[in-house]
Nucleic acid binder design. Structure first.
Lengths: 191, 191
DNA sequence: CTTATGGGTCAGCATCGTTGACACAAATGC
DNA sequence: GCATTTGTGTCAACGATGCTGACCCATAAG
């Protein structure tokens, strides 16, 4: 299964009016770049993301929390010891917006802040047991959704999904993603 | 680098893979269903969707509109002649929330409402030329993003991406998606 | 010692989602 | 033919989550 259709036909790129209707699927050159296919991608992203987030939202409502809380729990869980600054970069929100969500999470004992060892201005974030437990409950919901989608689609499709999703990101997001994927327990974030 | 105990325990807790009891895909391992892989999926969806929507947001800000406006323009453009009720189902929001966005779009001449032929209570929605032009400008932005991702990933990956995204949706969303993919039911422009 | 940086916080505002209640015209049922 | 249901609009109030501007503190760096 060859991937990589690097050859870019300028005609297709510029959305030259492709024939609709009886488009042969056999050839599968760069047909997947037709306008209709790209519009479909918009739809897929909308519905997919909408339903993916919806499953966790149900639980959040019961806890009087919002999606913003979930995002914090998720990324702090992903990267225990993360700095506030890095978290802000990941979420792409302002300090004030984060504060409004983070503060209650700390007060309610879901997240702990500890001064950085090398830089005591930092407040390194981590989940408490309580926070980890909640994050896990939220994860279990989405896990079901993702697992079903992955299992039905199969490994090859999953690999393709990953490639496309990475491609949708900007360079900055790709770097942030690497941060999350790294194994080191306490990545030496230099400043 | 001070060691972070919480990081270690969290990492350990996450380590174990657990192949679930479903029938294995013929001859293939299910490693892509490990917890770490599923967490990665969460990250990918977050960053991917975030950056995908961000490109259009820039333009929207200049026009004093929000993402909600874009969604309406998109789906009305996808389905000219769509009823208010169907649009509500697609967006999964309330009549009131839609009204706040739709009303200005109509007043500013981006969308037109025409009484239904068979049911005159309905207000069938369609884009005006002005609306179609705006929707196209927004689309062009996202088109670049999707096109790049698709081209870099290749046809096989794109097919996989589609399969996974469909799998993430609930049944209801899948039905709605079919509605959008159906042959255009006339009612307006098509480039 | 001075300045830059990581982080917090107050005040106010915008967007976009919610519920509840009510209005009205047209379709539909009996 | 009248009662009910349905499709849509709308008012009022509230909640979650973004934003900007301004200012503070503690610590790091030069």
């Amino acid at each position: 299964m060859g991937m990589n259709a690097e050859a870019d036909t300028a005609a297709l790129r510029r959305g030259a009016a492709e024939p609709q209707g009886a488009a042969p699927v056999a050839g599968r050159n760069l047909l997947f770049l037709r306008e209709e296919e790209l519009r479909l991608a918009q739809d897929l992203l909308f519905f997919g993301y909408r339903d993916f987030t919806a499953v966790a939202d149900q639980l959040l409502v019961e806890l009087n929390m919002g999606r913003a809380h979930h995002r914090v729990l998720h990324f702090v869980g992903r990267r225990p010891g993360i700095t506030v600054g890095d978290l802000l970069a990941i979420l792409s929100i302002t300090k004030q917006s984060l504060g409004r969500v983070l503060q209650p999470l700390v007060e309610d004992g879901y997240v702990v802040q500890t001064p950085g060892a090398s830089d005591r201005r930092q407040r390194l974030l981590a989940l408490t047991d309580k926070g980890a437990a909640l994050e896990r409950r939220l994860f279990e919901r989405q896990r079901e959704t993702i697992m079903r989608a992955y299992r039905e689609a199969g490994p090859t499709a999953v690999e393709g999904f990953r490639r496309v999703m990475r491609g949708l990101m900007g360079n900055e997001a790709r770097d942030l993603l690497k941060l999350l994927e790294d194994e080191p327990q306490d990545g030496g974030r230099r400043r």
